[in-house]
Amino acid sequence: GMETVEDITIEESKDSRSCLRICVTNPSIREDTLSKYVIYTVQGLDNQGDFERVRRYTDFVKLRMLLIENWPTCYVPPIPPKQVIGNFASQFIESRRKMLNHFVSKISELSYLYHAEEFQQFIRGPEDYEKATSLKQSICSIEPKFTSNFEEFNQEEVSDQRIQTIAGFEKFAKSNFVSLKEFKETVKTVKLQYEQFRYLMNGFSKKFTEVESQYLNYFGTVNIFTPLSAEAQENPFETLYEWIKFEIVDLKSMLQVVEHRYFLDNEKYKAECKVSEYNKRISKLQSGKSSIKQMLSTKSKEQNISSTEAKLAQKEKEIKAFSMVIRIALNRLGAYELPKFQEKKTKEYKTMMQQFSSLLQSEFQTFNHSAEESLKKSQS
Score class of each variant (00 low, 15 high):
S276Y: 08
K14S: 06
K376M: 09
E127G: 14
Q294M: 10
T366F: 10
F183W: 07
F146C: 03
F51V: 01
C273N: 11
R56G: 07
N149P: 05
S380L: 14
F183R: 13
K36Y: 04
T189A: 03
K299V: 00
T189G: 00
Q164W: 08
I282Q: 09
Y349L: 14
S300E: 11
I85T: 09
G168P: 04
F208H: 12
E242T: 03
G86S: 08
N223R: 14
K320V: 04
S287M: 03
F197Q: 06
M352R: 00
V54I: 04
I163H: 11
F150L: 13
K191V: 00
S291N: 02
G334H: 04
Y199T: 10
E372W: 05
I85R: 13
V257R: 13
N149M: 11
V258K: 05
Q361W: 13
K340G: 01
M352W: 01
E195S: 12
V178W: 03
K171G: 00
T41M: 06
R56Y: 03
F183A: 10
Q355R: 13
E231T: 12
L251G: 10
S276L: 10
V54K: 15
A335P: 03
L34K: 07
Y37W: 15
H102N: 02
F88W: 10
Y215Q: 05
G49Y: 07
L113W: 01
K301P: 08
M2T: 06
I68S: 12
D15L: 05
N47T: 01
S105A: 01
P126K: 12
N279D: 07
I326A: 08
T239E: 11
E373T: 15
T189P: 00
G334C: 06
T221F: 15
F322K: 08
F364L: 09
N70K: 15
C74N: 09
F237R: 04
Q137M: 13
I244V: 02
T147N: 13
A132Y: 00
I282C: 10
E247Q: 11
K350A: 14
V158T: 15
M352V: 01
L34S: 05
Q193V: 05
N87S: 10
F322Q: 10
A271S: 14
Y129R: 02
E109F: 01
L200S: 08
E118F: 06
D59T: 08
